[in-house]
Amino acid sequence: MLEVKDLHVSVEGNEILKGLSLTVTAGEVHAIMGPNGAGKSTLSAVIAGEDGYEVTSGSITFEGRDVLEMEIEERAQAGLLLGFQYPVEIPGVKNVYLLKAALNAQRVARGEGEIPAPEFMKLVKEKINFMKMDSSFLQRAVNEGFSGGEKKRNEILQMLVLQPKLAMLDEIDSGLDIDAMKVVAKGVNSLRDPKRGILIVTHYQRLLDHVEPDVVHVLVDGRIVKSGDKDLALELESRGYDWLVEESAA
């Protein structure tokens, strides 16, 4: 469903991604790992359409559509959804309001019409219970005063409600204690579906103990230098990244 070909991306003139290629097929969970500064978060940011990244060459297609030609909201409406490492606070805007607006925008774009309010509340209640979140979350302003763990859970909650075709999770495990990690992992696992792709960007192995990836990629200096199955992640855990960094430099 997602095809990234020879992608080159610069930020303020510095090339971050240097010919990255990646194919994600529906039903698969891919993990992108790598040392700090390798360009992991750049990849998901470019796919989502964040400003400040210049694609100098290469292509990104999603279900045959040229992603780079699409507006940010169009990408989301097409089913590409990014879970943020540092989700931003929006004072005064209720969490439940953002959720509903997002769901309806996506439904309307797909020609489905807005969701009836009772149906929406039922859906949200079910998901919020699943994520072990208090229903008071819905009435709080988006991410305002949320702890790190609460923010991450909230990102997963959005995924569960919005049901994207491709879920991208940027360092969703950072700053989580073990209990929160388990809840987040449970949420991610529940997203597993033969029709859905999942792309997890992470520095550490620990999330992958709970969410078993089908494919693991190692990103070093803007390129994928090695791909393998879940055992590659375990190998990285014991050996670190240095041997791959040296290999790729050689």
Binding site: A48, G49, E50, D51, E71, I72, E73, R75, A76, Q77, L81, L82, F84, P87, V88, I90, L98, A101, A102, A105, Q106, A109, Q158, L162
Partner: peptide, 15 residues
């Protein structure tokens, strides 16, 4: 905030 706008738009909400 550009980041607030991006956050909302990346959820499918128009600018």
């Amino acid at each position: 905030g550009e980041d607030q706008l991006f956050y909302c738009r990346s959820r499918g909400i128009s600018e």
